[in-house]
C-alpha cells in the first residue's frame, strides 16, 4: 500500500488513487492511426522505472505522473499535470 505524494494534497494512501496508463501509452488525438494504435496497444512494461499516469480519484481528482519502480515500488517522483500544471 503505497504512500503517494499528491502534488496538490500531500501524502495520501494509495487507495485514494487509480492508475490509468503509462505516459508512453497516451495517444495523441492528432496522431495517425498506425502510431495511435502502436501507442495504445504496446507497453515497454519494464522491470524497472516507468512513468505512469495516476489520478487522485478519491481526493482532489487531479492527474499526475509517477515515476515508479516496478520491482521495488519506490516512487521516485510525482509530477502534476493538467491545466493547473501548464506554465
Amino acid at each position: 500500500m503505497y504512500e503517494i505524494a499528491c502534488p496538490h494534497c500531500g501524502p495520501r494512501a494509495q487507495t485514494e488513487f487509480t492508475y490509468e496508463r503509462t505516459v508512453d501509452a497516451v495517444v495523441d488525438p492528432a496522431a495517425d492511426a498506425h502510431t495511435a494504435m502502436q501507442a495504445l496497444f504496446t507497453r515497454a512494461n519494464p522491470m524497472g522505472l516507468d512513468e505512469e499516469i495516476w489520478r487522485h480519484t478519491y481526493g482532489c481528482r487531479a492527474w499526475m505522473v509517477l515515476t515508479r519502480h516496478r520491482v521495488t515500488h519506490v516512487i521516485e517522483a510525482v509530477k502534476a499535470i493538467g491545466p493547473e500544471a501548464l506554465a
Binding site: 496497444f41 504496446t42 507497453r43 515497454a44 512494461n45 519494464p46 522491470m47 516496478r70
Partner: peptide, 15 residues
C-alpha cells in the same frame, strides 16, 4: 514483456 523486450519487441501486455 521483459523477455520479449530482450528481442526488442514491445507487447500488448502489462504485468
Amino acid at each position: 514483456g521483459q523477455v520479449a523486450g530482450l528481442a526488442g519487441l514491445k507487447l500488448p501486455i502489462e504485468s
